[in-house]
Design a protein around this nucleic acid. Structure first.
Lengths: 205, 205
DNA sequence: TAGATTGTTAATCGATTAACAATC
DNA sequence: TAGATTGTTAATCGATTAACAATC
């Protein structure tokens, strides 16, 4: 294990490897090589080897990587060898889709609470969850020790809600609002904005 | 205007700038500086100036950038000074949320068709769209000249559907399926996978 | 004018690739 | 063993930052 700081760009690729390896495992594969994994995710074999070797010697010359073993290691590194409780804030269309999404649970995440500030939504069911009043959000998150949240509120409310989440102890925010939100050091934000992603492709068309 | 090839990493930041500038314009602001824009999006002022200057001299010493002018230029560069028809494939929860999303139209995109291969969904309404049979997809996309698609089908179907989209002339795919899809040169893919984004943050927690 | 801020250069910093000894 | 593939090194390539003359 290497104690030096790992660049964020490498951390960003690990979940991609993890996803591909999980899929290989589902298909009954037992081993893979940097070449094969690279072809799968569109990254060079050299880079895959370099990235993985930051964390230890997980492969074997001649035979490559054991898929179950590498899966274990990557899950451990990314800290998804446990289950993270997630708060979902915003019970609109996107919130509904996320609340009903089946893909979180086997990747380390479990939505445990859903909030909205619209009183007409509070008490209603969204997926298997009952929408709670956003006014109780900070308190509930603090009490439950939730560290991860998904934000699907309008852009106009996003910064304010993010501030409250941070205040309540949330350390990672997945932001679906189409606006850059600012958070203190030590809090991570990931942005998902479909229009931004589309605009990144049209340049090349 | 610089005729050299612009790095993809710069292109990727332009939509972020565009989004922030649009918001500033909505708030009635007329000018901004690289410093102010940078604070807004969390990028250094030097980098913002460098990025923008790849495409021309859009600022003025002493006063910064005219927001409406820079908006125009960025939209032109990213080719979102026009409206792109978008095909949505997959009428599940995520497809529903995207079909009803109001944020595309003022950012250059307009969903014009929705497909699903589930016969029980064909003919049903999703947002304001009637779901069409995926069997007619290639034909419809070709006839309409659609170049951009959003993919919200299960991972097991994603590669196959992507191949059909490419065959039909689609050049940009926004992939919501949790799997890396491979496409020929000249076709762009952007991946949106919430679990992957979350896993990128847990490392730091 | 004086102050502010751009566009650009050069220096620094960081990431990727190619190559290969080690070894399974 | 012979073939395959890792982990790592050094070289290359690319991106970011700092600084400042130009100028609005």
């Amino acid at each position: 294990m290497n104690a030096e700081k790992i660049p964020d760009i490498i951390i960003g690729r690990l979940p991609i490897y993890l996803r591909a390896l999980q899929r290989m495992a589902d298909n009954g594969m037992k081993t893979t090589s940097s070449q094969e994994l690279g072809d799968n995710v569109g990254i060079s074999a050299a880079q895959i080897r370099k990235d993985i070797s930051q964390f230890g010697e997980f492969g074997k010359q001649g035979t490559g990587y054991s898929i179950p073993y590498l899966l274990d290691k990557l899950r451990e590194i990314l800290k998804v060898d446990r289950m993270w409780d997630v708060a979902l804030v915003g019970a609109g269309d996107m919130g509904h889709a996320l609340a009903r999404y089946q893909g979180f649970v086997n990747r380390g995440f479990c939505i445990t609470m859903v909030f909205d500030n619209d009183k007409s939504k509070v008490g209603q069911k969204v997926g298997e969850f009952v929408v709670e009043d956003a006014a109780t959000m900070a308190e509930r998150i603090k009490a439950a020790g939730v560290k991860v949240a998904m934000l699907t509120v309008p852009a106009s409310a996003a910064q304010e809600v993010a501030d409250k989440l941070v205040q309540a102890g949330v350390k990672g925010i997945l932001n679906y609002a189409p606006i850059s939100i600012n958070v203190p050091n030590g809090v991570k934000v990931q942005h998902i904005d479909p229009a931004t992603h589309l605009q990144r492709m049209t340049y090349y068309l």
